[in-house]
Design a protein around this nucleic acid. Sequence first.
DNA 1: ACCCTAAGCCTTATCACTCG
DNA 2: CGAGTGATAAGGCTTAGGGT
Length: 731
Amino acid sequence: MEPEVWAATLQESENGWLTFRPDQTIQSGCIVSSRFGVKQKNKVRPIDNFRSSLVNSTCGVREKVAMDGVDEIVSLCLHWLRRKRPVDPDVRVVGRTWDLKSAYKQLAVRADHKRFAAICMIDPKTNEVKIADVHSMPFGALAAVHAFLRCGEAIKAIGRCKLLLVMTNFFDDFTVLASKGNSKRVGLVVSFLFRKLGWDVAQEDKKNAPFGEVFDVLGVRIDLSQQHLGLVSIWNTPERLEELRADVRRLLLDQRISYEEAQRLRGRFLFAEQNVWGRNSRQAIVCLEDVPDTSSGPVPLTEGPAVSPAFSAEQGPGWQEARLWLDGACEWDVPSSSPICGFGGVLFLGDQILAWGFELPRAEGKKWAERVGKQQLVFECELLPYLISLQLWGTLLKACDLMIFIDNDAARASLAKSFTRKEEGARIVFEAVEEEERLDVQAFFMRVPTSSNIADGQEIARLKEHFGSPLHLLAAFDSEDEIKELIDVYWPGIGSDGVKERVKTLLKWSADNAKAGKRRRREILRDSLETLPSRPARPELAKSFEEATRDNPLVLLEGLARRKKLLRSEADPTQRASEEKVAREKYAILLCSFIKEAKLPVTEQLQDVSDPDSVWKRLFGNGKVPEPERFSKDTTWIAQLNSLTSDLKAASAPVRQAPMLTVAMVVSLELHVVKKDESLFERAMSWIALVAVFASMRIDDLQGVIPKSMALTDAGFRAVLGRTKTTGSDC
DNA sequence: ACCCTAAGCCTTATCACTCG
DNA sequence: CGAGTGATAAGGCTTAGGGT
């Protein structure tokens, strides 16, 4: 790449952006950074490595840069359209972008900073190192980025506040929206703004397209052609689409994909995804992640959700708000050895309340469990009602803002993320999200504790409401007949099947809640007694008993056991572990005494061992498998493991590690620390680096040093780390 | 009431990609 | 070189659900 970098540098010299030093010398106090090239599309971009020269390390930035990306542009468009849908062609929204010409180079380096802005590179013709002084903002300097972004923000602020432009800024890209009728004038105003402020604008045709309903910006295409419907579409640019299509076609033809290709494809999909709310592209992207990084070359494509290279997102305002409560359950039925799966949902939409519920027939449940290959299907049972509810109430939910209440965290998370590693769950999630997008539903998932999930039983919820509290409802019936009467009052004329169904539900509910009901009744009684202090006429039996036995050692023992338990739960885990180890040994010895007593064959085998006690402990201390029967000692298995290990080692990519400090670097750091005439700051930094080296710490671990624990004694420097990467959350 | 396990999330460091 | 994003590993944390 050297010739290209050299040519670009010569061009910069001609433009007056830098000057070659005729003598190629470096004065003291001057810092030189190297220049390298990065290939971008069809050109080579020279970059000055101000990091390796440590110039970038002198620049600290307190704030995060806020840039206007595709999100901001789209939200501006939507905001405009929400206020007023365009009916007449003149008020339709159009947009275009302005690009600054060689953006950074339009800013000068401050005179007294010039000595830090020298660069060097190799002249490929003579193979000599050439040094140049840079006069305009160097690409690669951290400070240059922020200097330029400040200017960009300033231009935007002037455009917005003084000229009332609808303008966003991303580095040197300025996007402006206008109504069609005004667009000519707005275009003139923007050009005038740049000219007056002294900024050169790119003049090439490609970057100078006129205002239109379709315009390209930041690597995407924004399409306002359906704005009368309140729609803003975002596409990959036609070039990118064609490139992606060609790549996908080639992959399908080859039926194989390599790690590098998968990563590249994934990167491009993620780029599209960050700009669109494409929930189901997740599934395709995760497939790409699973392509292993092996040196053995491409892997064959397998079946999976189809990868679609075309992305489009339609985001319209939500017209309605709805709340959907979901629940599912799965219990294992031993006699029929099949799962009992049930699910249901309740939808609140305006004034309407709708509900459905369903119990899977045993035979179907059995088939399902066999197909999925596990007994416990609760995760799937919690996911499924969402899909069913969307399918059932699709027409009602169109373009809806939907809040979903679900009492299983795993299901909630996978719906929100639109992905789960559980295969069956992934299928349900995929279908549900497809349905979501077809219906243009904006979903938001929240968790509710099981006890407050109303989807548990709509009838009961309604009855509870009427009775004021679950307790009152419990007290409202004692028999099936009384339930029937109740149902007749609340749901007159629902037919015998309906009555039977509800009787069953209510019976189950009352059985489930009987205990809680009794407890609550007791509590109420107790509370009411407390408010009415009364003295028992006779001494209570329990109290007398307690008084009589207070000093009995047997009672003390129980108290001790309780205390010990409490201590155990509060003891730290290491102490607990050692306690458990002692207990294990104790019971191992006990177990051994039983075995000896029973004269099992093993006692004979162990008679001749030199140190029988320790062998017994070893053998039975952890419930170990006898030596010859251990899989871990099986020679065939060990050989297989070894061969697998070596295969994996050979196939895996080399481990990449941070380069180690050389001995010379460590020595120079040490010398620096003791150099009295150096600045205190530099000496301190050197010392810090050395501490990290000597204590084998990550640099990040230094943040975990507890200041008050630091002590310098004759024995050396000592400090305690309160937190390291491996000690979990910081608190 | 209590213990245990499974299987999820959360946190942090690091790495991949995109754009300029 | 910088900015951004999302993804992963691995240990810790949390919750549901089953058993005693």
